[in-house]
Design a protein around this nucleic acid. Sequence first.
DNA 1: GACTCTAACGAGACTACGTGTCAATAGCAA
DNA 2: TTGCTATTGACACGTAGTCTCGTTAGAGTC
Lengths: 141, 141
Amino acid sequence: MSQVSPDAIERLLSRRGYRLTAPRRNLLEVMAGLGDHFVAEGIVSAAPEVGRATVFRTLRLLQDLGVVCQVVLDDGTLAYRLAPEEHHHHVLCVECGAAEDFSSPALESVLREVEESTGFTVEAHRLELYGRCSVCRASDH
Amino acid sequence: MSQVSPDAIERLLSRRGYRLTAPRRNLLEVMAGLGDHFVAEGIVSAAPEVGRATVFRTLRLLQDLGVVCQVVLDDGTLAYRLAPEEHHHHVLCVECGAAEDFSSPALESVLREVEESTGFTVEAHRLELYGRCSVCRASDH
DNA sequence: GACTCTAACGAGACTACGTGTCAATAGCAA
DNA sequence: TTGCTATTGACACGTAGTCTCGTTAGAGTC
């Protein structure tokens, strides 16, 4: 629910020395309007006046800046989400598509456990949870 | 390390009423030979005599049968792995590509924790770990 | 071994998603 | 206002996977 505002992202861009162009402002508005999470193609069609390449370039830039993060949906497709900078994971509702962030200190101990049993050093990970949100559970019994 | 043998998979196929065709045998051999994990395109080029569509059809069939599972690599590309039927996760070496399976009971408590804090019911999840295996850590430096 | 039914196949066109190139444009600092 | 250059759009290209459809070949039956 707590989304990063387009304004805050614009300030971040200029602070980092990136230009504040019309297409970028445009895309930020569109993303904010697309809700919880969005796929690249959704942005492309929601902002037809912005070139295809620019959409993907901007998406990558925002990812590098840490204001947008990847979300792997349960069918394997890749989506994106405006998100806090700290490391976190997602719970996705398979029914309505709602997404929520969470971070789990307990996961750290799972990683340590795996390191011990496999001999690997774990340097990165992906975790996505899929289920049903409280609203959907309540509505269709 | 403990891979399912092509023979065992062939038996499973016929037991389930699927035909034991030459392309299927062929693909099973190829997959077993490609090592830890493999991408679809790798199979296509390693088995040029088998049609592209057949490779993907077979891959999906094997997934449905539970003898092949998806692996999301750290760069986001999708790979596959011959794997045990039980639910498990992967640790991938980003250097040599080695993969190992693990299952973690402790992860269950992470899921319960998230359910409580978010109000979601978690029905499925993906977890992939990326790091370096003991061999790679020992060899370079 | 021959017959038959139909699952499975191969070829190749097609779609979806993403990248690379390059000349034109427009931020923004001076 | 000017000039530098980051950024853009158009479009060709690449890659990953799907669909269609006429043909082939498992495998059960006689």
